[in-house]
C-alpha cells in the first residue's frame, strides 16, 4: 500500500520537496555545524569532565551534595534570578504596551532609550549603581537633604541594590520580546471584544493578555536564563547572601583549578536551567505552539 502511494505521487509533490522552505533547512546546516563545534561539543566535554576529573565516578557530585555552600548557593542563584525576572516583567509589560502603540519618531526615541543602555558594559553600570547607593551617594544625600532621613541608609551591599542593578541591566531583554509580540497583536480583536460587551479591563484580561503570552514566555525565559549566569553585579552590589553559582564556578575554574568540581557545578546549573525551562513551557501551555500561532 505504501509502495502504491509512493508510485502514485504526482510529480508536483516531488517538486514541492525542493521548495524554498526545504532550502532554508539546508541553510541551517552551517549555523548548526558551528553550534555543534563551538557550543555542544564543549558542553559535552564539561559534562564528561564532571564525571572523570580527577577519576571516573560521581565524587564531584557527592561533594556538592555533602554539604558545604554549594546547594545553598545554587538555590540562592535560582531565587535571585526568579525575583529579577518577576520584577522585570512587572516593569517591562506597561512600557512595552505603551511602546507598541507609538509610531514614527516617538517609537524610535523610545526604542533608543531601551537599547542605548546596552552599549555600556554591565561592569560599568554596576559601578555606577555603587555611586548612587553608597553611604555618601546621590540617593542618601538626596534623602537626607530632603529631610526624609536623619542618617544614611546602608544600601550596599544588599538585596535592594542587587535587584535594582540586575533589573536595570536585564530590562531591555524583557521589553524587546514583549514589544515584538505586542506589535503583532491584532487590535481589532479588542474592538470585537468590546462590541460584544466586554469592558476594557475584561477585554485586556481575556483577549490581549493571553495573546501577549508568547512575548511574556520569550522575555521570561531570556531574562531568567541570563540572570542565572550573573557574575559581576551581585559581586559588587550584593551581600554575602547573593553569592551566585557563577562566582563559585569561577573560583573553582580560575583560582583553585579544580575543574572537576567546576564542571559538576556547571552541569547542575545547566540541568536545573533545562528542567525549569521544560517545566515552564508545560505550565504556560507550550510556549512554542503559541509562538507559531503568533508568527
Amino acid at each position: 500500500m505504501l509502495k502504491g502511494a509512493n508510485t502514485g505521487t504526482p510529480a508536483t509533490m516531488r517538486k514541492a520537496s525542493w521548495s524554498v522552505a526545504r532550502l532554508y533547512r539546508w541553510m541551517l546546516l552551517a549555523p548548526a555545524l558551528f553550534l555543534a563545534a563551538f557550543f555542544v561539543f564543549p558542553i559535552i566535554r564539561v559534562v564528561l569532565r564532571s564525571f572523570s576529573d580527577p577519576a571516573w565516578g560521581v565524587q564531584n557530585y557527592e561533594r556538592i551534595m555533602a554539604g558545604g555552600p554549594y546547594l545553598q548557593v545554587l538555590l540562592a542563584t535560582i531565587q535571585t534570578a526568579a525575583t529579577v525576572t518577576a520584577l522585570c516583567l512587572l516593569l517591562a509589560y506597561p512600557v512595552a504596551y505603551v511602546m507598541s502603540r507609538l509610531t514614527g519618531s516617538l517609537l524610535q526615541i523610545a526604542a533608543a532609550c531601551v537599547i542605548i543602555p546596552l552599549w555600556t558594559s554591565a561592569v560599568i553600570r554596576s559601578y555606577a549603581w555603587m555611586v548612587v547607593f553608597q553611604r555618601k551617594g546621590i540617593l542618601n544625600e538626596a534623602l537626607i537633604g530632603a529631610g526624609v532621613l536623619d542618617d544614611a541608609i546602608r544600601f550596599l551591599p544588599g538585596s535592594f541594590a542587587v535587584h535594582v542593578g540586575m533589573v536595570h541591566i536585564m530590562l531591555p531583554f524583557m521589553i524587546l520580546p514583549l514589544l515584538a509580540n505586542m506589535r503583532a497583536i491584532d487590535r481589532s480583536l479588542l474592538r470585537a471584544a468590546e462590541i460584544m460587551g466586554a469592558n476594557p479591563l475584561v477585554a485586556f484580561a481575556k483577549v490581549y493578555f493571553p495573546l501577549s503570552m508568547p512575548g511574556v514566555s520569550a522575555g521570561v525565559a531570556l531574562v531568567f536564563m541570563m540572570s542565572l549566569g550573573f557574575f559581576i553585579t551581585p559581586a559588587l552590589l550584593g551581600g554575602p547572601q547573593h553569592l551566585m553559582a557563577a562566582v563559585l564556578i569561577e573560583q573553582q575554574a580560575n583560582v583553585i583549578l579544580d575543574w572537576g568540581l567546576a564542571s559538576s557545578l556547571a552541569t547542575v546549573l545547566l540541568v536545573v536551567t533545562g528542567a525549569m525551562y521544560v517545566l515552564y513551557m508545560r505550565l504556560t501551555g507550550n510556549a512554542t505552539g503559541n509562538l507559531k500561532g503568533a508568527l
Binding site: G68, P69, A76, P240, Q251, I256, D258
Partner: peptide
C-alpha cells in the same frame, strides 16, 4: 588548605 577553607568561607558567608 585553600580549597577546604574557601568552601568553609563561602558557607560562612551565606
Amino acid at each position: 588548605n585553600s580549597q577546604a577553607t574557601l568552601e568553609k568561607f563561602n558557607s560562612w558567608l551565606i
